[in-house]
Simulated scan of single mutants.
Amino acid sequence: MTAGLYTEVHGEPGAETVLLSSGLGGSAGYWGPQVPALLEAGYRVITYDQRGTGRSRQALPADYRIEHMADDVIGILDSEGVSRCHVVGHALGGLVGLQLALDQPARISSLALINAWAAPNPHSARCFEARLALLDHVGPRAYVEAQPIFLYPASWAAAHAERVQAEVDHAFEHFPGADTMKARIGALRRFEVSQRLAELSLPVFVSSALDDVLVPATCSGRLSQAIAGSTAHVLPHGGHAHNITAPDAFNESMLAFLRNQR
């Protein structure tokens, strides 16, 4: 437990640190395919359950924002004695990384963004409205049952049906509550930094999948175009969670990017 949040630290003290920040689910466990690859490459790895989720069940502050989530990361780094690290963020976690890089650039060595965005878009808004309607009118079970539709390509989800159902059951068992989920969705829907991207001067890796049904790949394209010197990584298939569904391709590119920063 670090900075009041459930935190896991893997690897040798003194090694370069990579902090992994998850998407809307907020769980440290999301990064199963990435942690071993990073450890094998010699990095120290920090994962954490975001505030209000998993084993970090603290109440969220009023008017919850991405800035609050970024402050939590700084608290974790301070508690672990990490002055500077690489940040890898998936979706909402990528927004946290962008906020950190803009507001605390001295703490971030590089930033890897997975299916992230700099501004709201109407397609994702429609997806979130549908998910909120399920939550309000049917309940948490329907909300989590729909989650794989937005995360995974249909062919992958069908081929891994037992695994997907186990994830759904776990998500329902540990559902953080409707108020917390609505606050987290509200925070990511209000995020807007498109006019500040030119301020970024650190190395940035932008990874996307063309078949992401939740966040259009064009959002990553806009990030790549607006961030000078960024590295774009585009997969034709893999969905919103392509670091899970296509881990070898993702890990190879992510590690190559990180090696270039040494």
Rank of each mutant, 00 (worst) to 15 (best):
L151M: 13
Y152M: 03
A154V: 13
A154F: 05
A154Y: 02
S155K: 13
W156K: 00
A157V: 06
A157S: 15
A157D: 01
A157H: 08
A157R: 07
A158W: 04
A159T: 07
A159Y: 00
E162R: 14
E162P: 00
R163M: 13
R163G: 04
R163D: 02
V164R: 01
Q165F: 09
Q165N: 13
Q165H: 12
A166V: 02
A166D: 12
A166Y: 03
E167Q: 15
E167H: 05
V168W: 00
D169I: 10
A171F: 09
A171N: 08
F172M: 09
E173N: 06
E173T: 14
F175P: 04
P176D: 01
A178V: 12
A178I: 08
D179E: 15
D179W: 03
D179V: 12
D179P: 00
D179M: 07
D179N: 11
T180R: 14
T180H: 08
M181Y: 05
M181P: 07
K182C: 09
A183T: 06
A183N: 02
A183H: 08
R184S: 07
R184Q: 13
I185F: 07
I185V: 14
I185Y: 09
I185T: 14
G186R: 08
G186V: 04
A187G: 07
A187Q: 03
L188E: 15
L188R: 05
R189G: 05
F191G: 10
F191W: 13
F191I: 10
F191T: 09
E192Q: 15
V193F: 03
V193P: 10
S194N: 12
A198C: 08
L200K: 09
L200Q: 06
S201D: 13
S201M: 03
S201R: 15
P203C: 01
V204T: 13
F205T: 04
F205Q: 02
V206C: 07
V206M: 08
S207E: 01
S208T: 15
L210P: 00
D211L: 02
D211Q: 03
D211C: 05
D211V: 05
D212S: 06
V213W: 01
V213L: 12
L214R: 14
L214M: 12
L214S: 15
V215L: 01
V215F: 02
V215T: 13
V215E: 01
P216M: 04
A217L: 01
S220K: 06
S220M: 02
S220Q: 10
S220P: 03
